[in-house]
Design a protein around this nucleic acid. Structure first.
Length: 428
RNA sequence: GGACGGGUACCGAAGCGGUCAACCGGGCUGGACUGUAAAUCCAGUGUCUUUCGACUUCGGAGGUUCGAAUCCUCCCCCGUCCA
């Protein structure tokens, strides 16, 4: 169907094909398909974990198919039990609305809503789920689900076996997701739902429902869960979740997150999250094997994703900051540059008077700047050689910080360990 | 409602009258090595002072005792089994 070949093969070589319904490959080869992925508005921003499905939609679009991003304004009020071991906290409607707005903005970085022939769309399932009448729903949709079928689904089974059980609310989630698929199939001829592999059960519930209600053949395709060689959960940094929203995760931190990718994961991530061709990725793979220390693959990965999400200029800033923070000294940098580089580093103001004359004890500075949470901790830190003022190690726990040590008389750069920076600025 | 079992620091888990600020493991924080890595090694991990020491902690409240995380009473919570 497309000059570039079949998207199915594309997913396959990129390692993004975990499972798919039979016949999907032929369908994708023959015609332009409309496909959707659901996004949960449980937070005001998506995080890097959502990048895989988002890219899935984007790839699909480049291959001539039509992507729909479905925001779960309705289902978000219910909560999906898949992959969860405990009952979810319900969100209120206002919060969900707010989250949807944020998510839409982020999706637009990746999907083309203007594209000739197959523009992307965003739908909110609250538009139809909100209208649903209980009795109608039970008669028209509920009839097609046996409890036996629902109980047999992995996500439900696991929760039933768990001690806390599963509420009726979450139990119903599967039916609603199936209904979404049916609705999209009816109104827009959407015939494919994609998602993470944890969605397989829900997706099949949808294809089954569509077949029963209107006899159409619908398809599902799921991506593998993104794994992490170190065994930690993908998408977490030491600072917590890595979000797509620059207010929550600065472009610099976002860039660093990818930069820190384990050698064992980086090729897989390049396949999953970038547009790079097979040849380019093969080249980088060779690079990783030959000169792992250069981390060319990580740099390429970080560049591509950061640019896609935050743009060229943010990438440039992130790279400059990285260079200073990890590369060399800050010697030649003025206050202006430093302020820029340390833009999203915690910062405090201290009164000029406090730093004149004797100055302030480093232990105090540490608590004021919230570098440490007790004097004892600050003491240990210094003793072990983990505290730096303007790049110089503090040797003595009784050292004092005075105004003449300030860079251009305006600010101090404190560093704890290798990576944790704090700024102290002098206030009036 | 009844019968047991249990609640100890971020988590898991010892301790069951003094020598307990509380073994050990994980996590976390520094340091060394390094590739802004992994692995490894070292150190640290209640608060205040840091040498000694003082103070606050072992579900909660009381009590016994010279002395309690450890014994007693009541209460709260969790798990398992029986109703």
């Amino acid at each position: 169907m497309s000059a570039k070949g079949n998207i199915y093969d594309e997913f396959e070589w990129r390692g993004l094909l975990y499972d798919a319904t039979p016949g999907l490959k032929d369908l994708l080869a023959k015609e332009s398909v409309t496909a959707y992925i659901g996004f949960d508005p449980t937070a005001a921003s998506l995080h890097v974990g959502s990048l895989l499905p988002i890219m899935g939609l984007a790839r699909l679009q480049r291959f001539g198919h039509t992507p729909i991003a479905l925001v779960g304004g309705g289902t978000g009020l219910i909560g999906d039990p898949s992959g969860k071991t405990a009952e979810r906290q319900l969100l209120n409607k206002e919060k969900v609305e707010e989250n949807i707005a944020g998510i839409k903005a982020q999706l637009s970085h990746f999907l083309d809503f203007e594209r000739e022939g197959n523009p992307a769309r965003i739908e909110n399932n609250h538009d139809w789920l909100g209208q649903l009448q209980l009795i109608d729903f039970l008669r028209d949709t509920g009839k097609h689900f046996t409890v036996n079928y629902m109980l047999s689904k992995e996500s439900v089974k696991r929760r039933i076996e768990s001690e806390d059980g599963i509420s009726y609310t979450e139990f119903t989630y599967m039916m609603l997701q199936a209904y979404d698929f049916l609705e999209l199939n009816r109104r827009g001829d959407c015939s494919l739902q994609m998602g993470g592999s944890d969605q397989w059960g829900n997706i099949l519930a949808g294809t089954d429902l569509i077949r029963r209600v209107n006899g159409n053949k619908a398809h599902g395709l799921v991506f593998p869960l993104v794994t992490n060689a170190s065994g930690t959960k993908f998408g977490k940094s030491e600072a917590g979740n890595v979000w797509l929203d620059p207010e929550l995760t600065s472009p610099y931190k976002f860039y660093q997150f990818w930069m820190n990718t384990d050698d064992r994961d980086v090729i897989h991530y390049l396949k999953s999250f970038t547009w790079l061709s097979r040849e380019e990725i093969d080249g980088l793979e060779a690079e990783v094997n030959e000169r792992p220390g250069a981390r060319e693959a990580q740099r390429t990965l970080a560049r591509h994703i950061t640019t896609a999400l935050h743009g060229e200029s943010e990438l440039a800033k992130s790279e400059m900051a990285s260079k200073v923070l990890f590369g060399g000294s800050m010697e030649n940098l003025g206050v202006k540059d430093l302020r820029d580089i340390f833009e999203d580093v915690p910062s405090i103001m201290l009164a000029k008077e406090a730093l004149e004359g004797e100055g302030m004890g480093m232990l105090d500075v540490c608590s004021q700047a919230e570098i440490t949470s007790s004097n004892g901790e600050a003491r240990r830190l210094i003793r072990q050689g983990g505290l730096f003022l303007n790049g110089e190690r503090i040797e003595d726990e009784n050292a004092r910080m005075t105004i003449d040590q300030a860079i251009e008389g305006e600010l101090f750069v404190l560093r704890k360990g290798k990576k944790s920076y704090h700024l102290v600025q002098i206030g009036g």
